[in-house]
């Protein structure tokens, strides 16, 4: 029941701090060294992502099963959107962290990753064209968290508790959508331009879902081929998707 302005300011405050890889980077990368750096960073970011989700107003009121479900579905989309946000002012580069920046050619050393880098760079360019604002970015990220297709489209609640949690989740999604509409309304656009912007921004979410699916397949393959040792939280999240 928070006012939209307060809701946005709460999700802005929930933003995770800047994270550093803090590794001695030996260039040129090998397939194993780059995958190790990427997975180490992802593992660190995942811990912060859980803390971020807990700060989204209303998230902790969902059942624990739903919290787990939503996070395990969206984690790679959230990582990718964060990466795009950090990279938006750096054309041609992917800013994984302030001490781990890559260009597309550096992806050559990992089989199959350049295709994903190219998709990420293209989607980042689109956000650059749209001049994505921070307020919009945090709303899109919260929408990804709540937009599990498995949850919304395939499962139906069986118990009263499940039904209650699902209803809470839908109300929370309403709040995030309202917040995004509100953020767009502050940009001084005409009503038609606002509607178009909302459409363009939300349509990008399907591209992010696609990239995440590609990324998940890629990481599973790298793990299966023993290119990289996946462990801890990242292993748990990857296993949840395969």
């Amino acid at each position: 029941h928070l006012h939209l302005e307060e809701f946005i300011s709460r999700i802005m405050e929930a933003e995770p701090p800047e994270i550093y890889l803090m590794e001695d980077m030996k260039k040129p990368f090998t397939e194993a060294s780059m995958m190790m750096s990427l997975t180490n960073l992802a593992d660190k970011e995942l811990v912060l992502m859980i803390s971020w989700a807990k700060k989204i107003p209303g998230f902790l009121e969902l059942s624990l099963a739903d919290q787990i479900h939503l996070l395990k579905c969206c984690w790679l989309e959230i990582l990718m959107l964060g990466l795009m946000w950090r990279s938006v002012d750096h054309p041609g580069k992917l800013i994984f962290s302030p001490d781990f920046k890559l260009n597309r050619e550096e992806g050559q050393c990992v089989e199959g990753i350049m295709e994903i880098f190219d998709m990420l760079l293209a989607a980042t360019s689109r956000f650059r064209e749209l001049k994505l604002r921070r307020e919009e970015y945090v709303c899109l990220k919260a929408m990804i968290l709540l937009n599990s297709s498995e949850y919304l489209c395939t499962s139906s609640p069986q118990t009263a508790e499940e039904l209650e949690s699902r209803n809470k989740m839908l109300r929370l999604l309403d709040s995030v959508i309202d917040a995004l509409v509100w953020a767009i309304s502050k940009l001084g656009l005409t009503t038609q331009q606002q509607t178009l912007r909302l459409g363009h921004l939300t349509m990008l979410l399907s591209h992010i879902r696609h990239m995440s699916n590609k990324g998940m397949d890629h990481l599973s393959t790298m793990k299966r081929k023993n290119v990289v040792l996946v462990y801890d939280l990242l292993l748990e999240m990857l296993d949840a998707n395969t």
Binding site: K44, V47, L48, S51, K54, L64, K72, L233, E236, A240
Partner: peptide, 24 residues
């Protein structure tokens, strides 16, 4: 219980009030 076992770390982090920065 199965959720707890399957998602041990995730479950722990969701329930834990310890600063995630310490855990990271």
């Amino acid at each position: 219980t199965s959720l707890k076992e399957k998602h041990k770390i995730l479950h722990q982090l969701l329930q834990n009030s310890t600063s995630p920065v310490d855990l990271a």
